[in-house]
Design a protein around this nucleic acid. Structure first.
Lengths: 332, 332
DNA sequence: CAGATTTGCACAATCGATGTTGCAAACCAT
DNA sequence: ATGGTTTGCAACATCGATTGTGCAAATCTG
């Protein structure tokens, strides 16, 4: 029934009694500019429709050197990035382009390799979320003239959209401290009666800023923050479980306050917490810098910061399209 | 520093004192077949490397009509599909191809449109997860000779990998019933003292089979299943919240047993459950047909079936590559 | 050493769409 | 009717890689 070999503009040209270039113009919408009679264009479009023609996008991309592919690079596929992916995908398809979503596992080499691959596909634009080595990536993109934006990771060389981690961390920290006070904890009295920051990678700006907000809030309210209260070496899930177990062992119990830096770390921490009796859990005020809907329903209360992923991505597209230079947009 | 215009085989050809066709052969690995001297090939490869050459994949795709793009279509981005996406992405990249992940929101038109789009990109293969209208999609793909596999949704016209929903549902139902008995519930005594099946779309095979497994298990153990115990109209999250609320209102409380059909529905249900006092929750035995790691840590116990997403996808690739006809592979 | 074979490579057509250039025919003005 | 302008479209080169074909030079055969 359907023909296996696809229709091309040449086939349509024959059927319409026109030249391929006229068909091309009619079908890609430039026919007005090219002074094709409306009647001709309509006829061609009708024929193309009934023959089930669809443009060979490789040919178009080769000719125009624009592929219609837009990529999103994320560190991993988790809940937060799923939401981002959904928004991204919708935005791309609304623009009649094709979304490519790839995770690079927070690995700088994998990031660079991926970008190199994407370049071979004449990718039109890239949105990097939480990239590890933004400067390198930006230079790579600039060398090939690829539009790009960083989300949740600032970069001097390109436009960025970031959440205001500092402010968010400050607020979350105050919430946790407030909850501790409500429970009657004498904060700072002993190592256990204190608040700890867990997870993330302090060499990355987002973690750095969250740690900074945490520090400021603690110092403002209590003073005397001990550097050991911040444990931020990695986003790794398993490592988070271990780290919390170690902290528990060192302190002889859970700390009374815990600032958890991302949903991955949250999940890791929960694996350890799940091994503890419920009584111990209610003696710890927990905050998480990420929104995890199930978190609300745990056996103990958790404070959460909701990230505005939809806005992040939409602003990222706006920046891509406005073709702005290095700008930082702060969300929230 | 870096040149803006990319190197092509023609540029390399000049620098190597060879012809473009020789360069092409050297770089794409067919040089042995084409009887190019090893020395020549090596020289060309060296030059290409130092010039930072990368193949223009549009040109290659145009010529060979194979794009190197492989797509994954999922109903939505949630936790389960995130895991699938991760595995998919790794498998594709291991094959030196480019992964495209798109969600179609369980909408048959969007599914068909998406496939039509992908065809314009001369996509090499498509993996459909939980597709709504597999037959239509399969015919579309066959018309354009696109390799494809269905995951978690059988189809007569193409290879499929499905989890054994029937068996899984049976097991999960027995677990829930066991838990109810342990709590001393006199199952079947009153509407509340019974088990309900919540969520999904019974017009889809996976839901259908789960409902069947549920039915069989209930009938085997208790008998007398009332059709109203199965509420399976949609996967929608908000609707799940409402439905559970309605059930709660009708029964005058939570049912003593609840079979929840997917992680999305689970999240929806939890939103309602979160509004209830803890005492009521412990009077309900809950099972979820999906694995949600945080589920273990809720304020009440939840039984879960872990889906073997990694195996699903790997088998799917195996089927793609073996080029088998319509086969159904049952996992677990 | 003539003829047959093999080796190593260049040539040129091709994939399908785009866009510049050019050229008739149609239309207008005088 | 003559020259000028506009309209409508066809011709053709091009994007970069692949691949069938052809042809020298090198090597082998007897």
């Amino acid at each position: 029934m359907k023909k296996l070999q696809k229709e091309t503009i040449y086939g349509i040209a024959v059927k319409a009694g026109a030249s391929p270039s006229t068909v091309s113009a009619a079908l890609n919408g430039t026919w007005k500019k090219r002074r094709i009679a409306a009647a001709t264009a309509e006829k061609i479009i009708a024929i193309a429709r009934e023959e089930g023609y669809s443009t060979n996008l490789q040919a178009r991309a080769l000719r125009t050197s624009r592929s219609g592919l837009v990529a999103l690079l994320v560190p991993e596929y988790n809940r937060f990035f799923s939401s981002i992916a959904q928004t991204f995908s919708d935005e791309v398809r609304a623009r009649n382009q094709c979304p490519i979503i790839i995770s690079t596992g927070r690995n700088p080499e994998k990031e660079a390799d991926t970008v190199a691959d994407l370049m071979s596909w004449s990718i039109d634009a890239i949105i990097f979320v939480g990239a590890v080595s933004p400067d390198t990536l930006s230079r790579q993109c600039q060398a090939s003239d690829i539009a790009h934006v960083f989300v949740d990771q600032p970069c001097d060389l390109a436009p960025c959209v970031v959440t205001d981690s500092l402010m968010g961390a400050r607020i979350l920290t105050h919430e946790i401290l407030g909850s501790m006070e409500k429970r009657g904890v004498k904060i700072g009295n002993s190592p256990r009666e204190n608040i700890y920051f867990l997870g993330g990678d302090r060499s990355l700006p987002s973690t750095y800023n969250r740690a900074l907000g945490f520090t400021e809030a603690v110092n403002a309210r209590i003073g005397n923050l001990n550097p050991e209260q911040i444990i931020a070496e990695t986003y790794d899930l398993e490592r988070a479980t271990e780290t919390l177990a170690e902290l528990y062992a060192n302190l002889g119990g859970l700390p009374q306050g815990l600032f958890i830096n991302s949903d991955t770390v949250f999940e890791g921490a929960l694996r350890f917490l799940a091994t503890l009796p419920e009584a111990e859990l209610t003696e710890c005020s927990i905050g998480c810098f990420d929104y995890e809907p199930l978190g609300q329903l745990l056996r103990f209360p958790v404070h959460m910061i909701r990230q505005r992923h939809k806005m992040l991505i939409q602003r990222a597209f706006a920046l891509l399209e406005s073709n702005s230079g290095p700008v930082v947009e702060m969300i929230q």
